[in-house]
């Protein structure tokens, strides 16, 4: 009974790790499916019961790893409200796609530092798998990226948040006359993540 209880207990730090891992595989899937980088610079990894593509280019990994570390830190501090991946054209700086992850953190303050929530890990994995599977399937309705594109990652956080040097103030990078498609969401019982993609309509 004690073992089962320990396995299903989710703490704030554990939930932050789970969400960070989701962002790791989710952002890499977006990079692969939208063909921002050559497909031969990705390698296969098994996770959540899926075969996922993860970039193994050194420069890209050196770019993403500090980003995910900082995201995990802010998740554990309950300061992360939204993560947005912005895909824009290189020449004109026009935003063509926007992947938005809204994060809602449950309040565990009254329960103390070591408060836990109970949720089965298998169910969490299944929900994350559903979201990433939907990210993969979204290639079918998203428009073709004809021009060379680049990406940025925005973070929505509180005003009193301390930021490292790499993070600069930015606008919201909204798309005019955009279409929005709501994807699935998942929850670790501490963090809830809602996913939607906004893209520029051609007509």
């Amino acid at each position: 009974m004690t073992d089962v209880k320990t396995q299903n207990a989710i703490s704030l730090k554990g939930s932050a790790q789970l969400v960070k891992e989701f962002f790791h595989f989710g952002l890499n899937s977006i990079l692969y499916q939208r063909a921002l980088y050559p497909s031969d610079s990705f390698k296969r990894e098994k996770k959540y019961g899926l075969t996922l593509w993860v970039a193994h280019e050194k420069k890209l990994q050196a770019f993403m790893d500090p980003l995910l570390q900082q995201v995990e830190y802010w998740l554990a501090k309950r300061q992360l409200k939204r993560l947005v991946m912005v895909i824009s054209e290189v020449k004109t700086k026009e935003v063509v796609e926007r992947w938005q992850f809204d994060i809602h953190t449950e309040n565990l303050a009254e329960e103390g530092e070591n408060a836990h929530r109970v949720k089965e890990e298998k169910k969490i994995r299944q929900e994350i798998s559903d979201v990433i599977r939907q990210i993969t399937a979204s290639v079918s309705f998203l428009p073709l990226l004809e021009e060379p594109v680049s990406f940025d990652v925005l973070i929505y956080t509180g005003k009193d948040t301390q930021a490292p040097e790499d993070w600069t103030e930015s606008g919201a990078c909204l798309i005019q006359n955009s279409e929005t498609v709501q994807l699935r969401s998942f929850s670790t019982s501490v963090h809830s993540v809602n996913t939607n993609v906004q893209y520029k309509a051609d007509f």
Binding site: L67, D152, D166
Partner: peptide, 10 residues
């Protein structure tokens, strides 16, 4: 009350 930060813009 929110703040938008961008990681290594461009």
């Amino acid at each position: 009350g929110d703040r938008i930060l961008c990681y290594k813009k461009n």
